[in-house]
Design a protein around this nucleic acid. Structure first.
Lengths: 224, 224
DNA sequence: GTAATAGTGTCTATGAGACATTATTGA
DNA sequence: TCAATAATGTCTCATAGACACTATTAC
């Protein structure tokens, strides 16, 4: 077979919502190139490893989270010849959404990993082309909230409509009308299912608890 | 740098609309594996070549079309360890939309390349995992017609509203009301711009000619 | 009681779909 | 004349957004 070997890596954009803000997991690089700079977690794909498995492995190494409660999807592949000064590396970027509070960051790179508000990540501060990758992944997440039940991936297994709304407000950066939001979510078929339980953890009148529904797309979509 | 070399290729899903049908360009493989089977055009990325440039090069080799009038976008990357029996190959799939009638298929692989109605491509007939790649790309095209002005990429430089509607009907496989379609398209800001010219090539009363507008997204979206 | 949040009801403007009607060409 | 397609207008129903109002807890 006639081909030039190229390094294939995966980079992860791991997002969560904490205290009303959209945050991303970044690691501080301990070795050149870009030593000392913040970067997305990632690494090379192993010889017999599927791309998604490589992303899941990185996710586990960085957060200690296993796959069940995690939404993981491919975003895009970045392959400019000069994106890595060490040589030709093509990187497949994945987007992961984890509930708040995520398991404490643990694993081999634990010391250098931490959560950063997406709004505080200045352009040009990240290593490689990770600014672009982060921007593309965040835009993907924002767009998918409209027509998919993705927002529940940011929530604990059981959540209130208010908590779900807080996810939308954090990701979109806009305020939503609580009453219209409640009506739209509960009227969208199979978006969320009531558990029958209630909670007062948000204060005020007890709120119904819901679990993620079976819908894979929202009809009609929620609009920004 | 510590990585296992992996072959990186691009595969193209080149779509057009001909005589009211959505068609895809396929090549018949002359060598193993999958000798004699239909496949998407594609090839390995060169050492100093960007991914999109590799896709453009393949497009030019297969269709003789240069880049200006062509819509090209990345769809997804496929990297199952066993997707190519010859060894580990990761393929970045691109979607290309070309106007009808496209330039005659020419180039090195000309003899084996031809247009096939997407509806006639039976599952399991294509080489490698190209069935899946084709399905993903077609679904991407269908979805993007709703909220982007992408359909104009299937049209000649100047087109009528009827011709644009024929694109939607071919890609979506549904009939649309000509009157409501006309109203929605012409009312969507910057979707299409009138040239001031008319044509009678579709028969009947002369129709205004339009060029693609400057909009990058449609507000509101056209719905299927 | 007050404060806070949950949840329901109502009004209105907008937009989508159905479809009538008129306009302009070729044969 | 008729046939064909283009383009505009009208009607109705559904829904999104604004917001009044009631419900249920903690203090």
């Amino acid at each position: 077979m006639d081909f030039e070997p190229i390094g294939v890596a995966t980079d992860l954009v791991i997002l969560t919502v904490r205290s009303g803000r959209l945050e991303v997991l970044l690691v501080r690089r301990g070795i050149p190139p870009y030593k000392g700079r913040l970067a997305l977690p990632g690494g090379f794909v192993r010889p017999a490893e599927d791309l998604a498995d490589a992303a899941l492995r990185e996710l586990r190494e960085e957060t200690g989270l296993a796959g069940e409660r995690i939404h993981l999807e491919q975003v895009a592949t970045y392959g400019s010849p000069r994106r890595d000064p060490r040589g030709r590396v093509v990187s497949v970027a994945y987007l992961a959404l984890v509930p708040d509070p995520p398991s404490p960051v643990a694993g081999t790179d634990a010391a250098s990993a931490g959560w950063h508000p997406v709004a505080d990540v200045d352009p040009g501060r990240l290593a490689f082309d990770h600014d672009r990758i982060l921007a593309d992944a965040v835009e993907r997440a924002r767009a998918k909230l409209e027509y998919s039940p993705l927002a529940t991936a940011f929530c604990p297994p059981e959540f209130t409509i208010s908590e779900l709304r807080a996810v939308y407000e954090a990701v979109w950066g806009t305020a939503l009308d609580p009453r219209n939001f409640h009506r739209k979510v509960t009227k969208t078929p199979d978006f969320v299912f009531p558990t029958g339980e209630t909670t007062t953890r948000d204060g005020g009148r007890p709120a119904q608890l819901f679990r993620p529904g079976t819908a894979r797309a929202l009809h009609p979509p929620l609009v920004r």
